[in-house]
């Protein structure tokens, strides 16, 4: 049976993981390779690295980082942040990334997702969407996420997810901005709306604080994968324990 995936997410800058990883006994908690290895041992199904300070000048550092992760890690990983063109996608894939997450550039360049999917295949194109609740059952897309709360654009997030999947995105990574950072649970309504609007896998992000939140996002949110950062990085819960919790509640996971 296809399992639900648990995906730790790392913020990176200049090839280093930022935000402290507080629980693992690591020599260098900023080293993406060492962290990737440790999380692989913990039972992570995939890894996501988001370059929070991506820029053309820093591209070489990012590529170097991707290459060293790919050298050592034998589970899939996604790289996001600053991906603006098919050429950026190509560089990341050739360096060893399995998937590339596109966010702001997908909004600003209408053809990017289609072009990238045609050239490299849908399987490696993830569209990341940051969505903020407007009213009941309605969420607005925000670009430049993480920069002062992001920039609102006049696009409905659920509709946008549908258009991106139509254009060839192989996966949608949906972040509920209202839930993000609260550790009070994912935006279940948003996740479910997106999951029902597209025929590609949906990764839920933002708000995980307890194993129960992951259970909810799979059952009520209909997500295919759950992404989380702090819950794992701060050692509040171990990946294996979360998976055990899910398995006991009949959620298929890889143990």
């Amino acid at each position: 049976m296809l399992t639900k995936r648990i995906i730790p997410c790392f913020d990176v800058a200049d090839g280093r993981v930022v935000k402290g990883i507080r629980f693992l006994n690591l020599r260098d908690a900023g080293d993406p390779v060492e962290l990737a290895r440790a999380y692989n041992d913990e039972g992570a199904d995939e890894l996501v690295f988001l370059d929070i300070r991506a820029s053309p000048e820093r591209r070489d550092t990012a590529i170097e980082m991707v290459r060293s992760i790919a050298n050592e890690v034998f589970i899939p990983f996604t790289v996001g942040g600053g991906i603006r063109s098919p050429e950026d996608v190509r560089q990341m894939l050739e360096s060893g990334a399995d998937k590339v997450a596109i966010n702001t550039a997908a909004v600003e360049n209408a053809d990017l997702v289609r072009e990238a999917a045609e050239r490299f295949g849908s399987q490696c194109i993830v569209v990341a969407i940051d969505a903020k609740r407007l009213a009941a059952g309605s969420w607005q897309v925000h670009t430049y996420g993480g920069v002062g709360g992001g920039t609102p654009v006049e696009i409905d997030a659920v509709e946008w997810a549908g258009r991106c999947a139509e254009a060839g995105a192989g996966e949608i990574l949906i972040t509920g901005m209202d839930a993000d950072g609260t550790q009070e649970g994912y935006d279940l309504e948003l996740t479910r709306a997106v999951s029902e609007a597209v025929r590609v896998p949906v990764v839920a992000s933002g708000g995980a604080g307890e194993p129960e939140h992951m259970y909810e996002v799979f059952v009520k949110g209909k997500a295919d994968a759950a992404l989380a950062a702090s819950i794992f990085h701060f050692g509040t819960h171990r990946i294996r324990d979360v998976k055990q919790y899910l398995a006991e509640r009949d959620i298929p996971v890889r143990l």
Binding site: L2, D45, G170, P201
Partner: peptide, 10 residues
């Protein structure tokens, strides 16, 4: 079912 079939399976 959702396509692609993406993830860990037995």
């Amino acid at each position: 079912l959702k396509v692609p079939h993406m993830g860990w399976n037995q």
